[in-house]
Amino acid sequence: MTSGVIEIEGLRKTFHSLRRGRRVAVDGFDLLVEAGQVHGFLGPNGSGKTTTLRALLGLVRADDGRMRVLGANAPEQLPQVAGRVGAIVESPQFYGNFTGYRTLRLLALAGGVPVARVDEVLEQVGLADRGDERVKGYSLGMKQRLAVASALLKRPELLILDEPANGLDPAGIREMRDLVRALAANGVTVLLSSHILAEIQLICDHVTIISQGRRVAAGPVAEVLAGFDHNEHLVRADDLARAEELLLAAGLTVTGHPDHLVVSGVPDPTAVSRTLGEQGVWVRELTPLRPDLESVFLELTGTPAHPGVPRQVDGSAPPGDPAGDQEIDLGMRGVDA
């Protein structure tokens, strides 16, 4: 048994169109979000993130797979738990001629939420002074805030946010981060899809990475990153060529660069300083190279940029390819585990 707030197992979705033919959007995808997590959901453009979220929320019919939200089978039993789930999917659109207040008021009315809650959420997302303005006058960031406000109206137990930082300025991104943290501190489980990997790393405690419709990594952020920690260290020394010779002679793996060396497979950096110091080569810098989410993401999804080569949207590496490597599942229990 699991305590999954969101459980997705073997989700498949293929779109068919006369013009583009058959396109597999999600191909046996698994996702487990447990209560209290702030869970990052990452993937390149067109990898199946939004399709997954839409399927989970009953907006897209899955071809196969099992989904549960707050213990209810999705989409059949979604109406039972919809009042506890706040969600925004991609960039939500609103009627331009309605004010922000009216937009939320109508949603509150339709959802049976007290209208007084509208003022609270407008305050919460920083739109209290702009609620009486028409949405068509809002900037992209303000519309995004309005969307988040609509998701918060229900006081959700589960918040699903698809690219909530879209269009936000740096201050807005920080506010969004603080808001998500505050919600998480109050026990709200958050599933957050974003392209801003640094943000995910700052906010999320768990992460799932999707590429070409399949999960390529999942688990606590720290453990996913640790899985890509090759114990590399950046080394700068007064005589770089001599330092490289000495380290190679000591049996270490060294990659040379014009102004520094990268030494791999060194759990203890004192081995580097000792090896060089004993031969009279003085170390000027010895910095551990820890992987960040961006490098892990690019490595897993096979989407690093190559100068002069425009990457196509569907150009990420499929799981199992050398770039995609094997799926990494760290600290995640299986859905049926």
Partner: peptide, 18 residues
Amino acid sequence: GADLNSGGVVNLLLWRPR
């Protein structure tokens, strides 16, 4: 038509998934 085109129906279905 405007509701379907603008995403208004999607917004509503997130609240009332029937």
